[in-house]
């Protein structure tokens, strides 16, 4: 039986919620394969930004990776679903959707279009707004605020609909832009907000919960298919064990870190989400056909 070490790309560092999942996967894989199959994590985007990592796995240049679903909309329109605001209301709704037929169908599409196999749906969790201007009690409080989005048309449309002056900006520039005031506002999951020390440059944490962000654990499809059927099964089993561990850690860290961010001086606001949800309906309508109306409706229905 062959021995192998898989290089795994992570956007965040060794203490992150992503690393919890990747480490667990590695441990289980090593245990199940009796030491034959191991992993070597590469933290902080050392192998490239998320888009290049997804592309690289498809080309056989990178073994494995965990990324947000952000770059996948470039390969399969259906993945723009996860950029759409207020689609999933609870983590359980998202888990139900992802772990069932819809998640499988999305994974199958990514495999055929990008050559990337999703092993399991880990997560970044819900994304929230932080800014330096005022607490957000409703979308009207976003007026005139310069807000940074990821590179995504859907996200720009969302924040424009909410009333902000929204523009995309490269991730490496965000901290300084917020510190100097080129940008007032950004949005990310709580563990990321804590990990990159946004509490040093942002006063308000607003739990807007506007997007649920999955973080699939992936392997290049070519590489996966080159493994023996037994090893393929081991990889899938290790991922299946690691997914709930990662999700649990992500949810626990979110709760703990909200308190910690408050202790570090951020003003935490829990706005009524209904007005936000209403404001973004036109964005959902606008993108529904591109993403696939059935898929959007199925996702919206997953919580109820």
């Amino acid at each position: 039986q062959e021995s192998r070490t898989f290089e795994v790309s992570l956007p965040l560092g060794p203490e992150s919620h992503q690393a919890v999942g990747v480490h667990k996967f590695g441990e289980e894989l090593e245990r199940l394969s009796e030491g034959r199959l191991t992993i070597r994590p590469q933290y902080d985007n050392a192998l490239g930004a998320e888009r290049e990592v997804v592309e690289g796995m498809g080309f056989g240049l990178i073994d494995m990776g965990i990324t947000s679903t952000g770059p996948m909309g470039g390969f399969v329109n259906d993945f723009l679903l996860f950029d759409l605001p207020y689609i999933f209301t609870t983590p359980e709704a998202a888990y139900g959707f992802l772990d069932g037929e819809h998640g499988d169908a999305l994974a199958a599409k990514l495999e055929s279009e990008a050559g990337v196999k999703i092993l399991g749906w880990m997560e970044n969790g819900f994304r929230h707004n932080t800014n330096n201007v005022r607490p957000l009690n409703g979308p009207e409080d976003l007026a005139g605020i310069r807000h940074r989005t990821q590179e995504s048309r859907v996200q720009v449309d969302t924040w424009t609909a909410l009333g902000a002056n929204a523009s995309p900006m490269a991730w490496t520039e965000v901290f300084t832009a917020l510190q100097q005031g080129v940008m007032d506002s950004q949005e990310n999951p709580v563990p990321t907000i804590y990990d990159v020390k946004f509490y040093d440059v942002q006063r308000y944490l607003n739990l807007t919960k506007h997007v649920y962000s999955p973080a699939p654990l992936m392997m290049g499809a070519q590489l996966f298919n080159s493994l023996s059927p037994e090893d393929q099964a081991l990889v899938m089993e290790a991922a299946a064990i690691a997914v709930p561990v990662q999700r649990e850690a992500s949810q626990r860290m979110e709760q703990e870190l909200i308190d910690e961010l408050e202790r570090l001086g951020m003003t935490v606001t829990r706005p009524d989400l209904e007005p936000f949800r209403e404001r973004v309906q036109p964005v959902i309508e606008q993108w529904k056909d591109t993403v696939g109306a059935e898929l959007v409706e199925a996702a919206q229905a997953s919580g109820s």
């Binding site: 888009r51 592309e55 080309f59 952000g70 770059p71 909309g73 470039g74 390969f75 279009e113 990008a114 990821q150 590179e151 995504s152 048309r153 720009v156 995309p168």
Partner: peptide, 12 residues
């Protein structure tokens, strides 16, 4: 590589 990325769309 150009041939392979033909179906991929740029984010913005």
């Amino acid at each position: 590589i150009t041939e392979r990325v033909l179906p991929q769309t740029a984010p913005s």
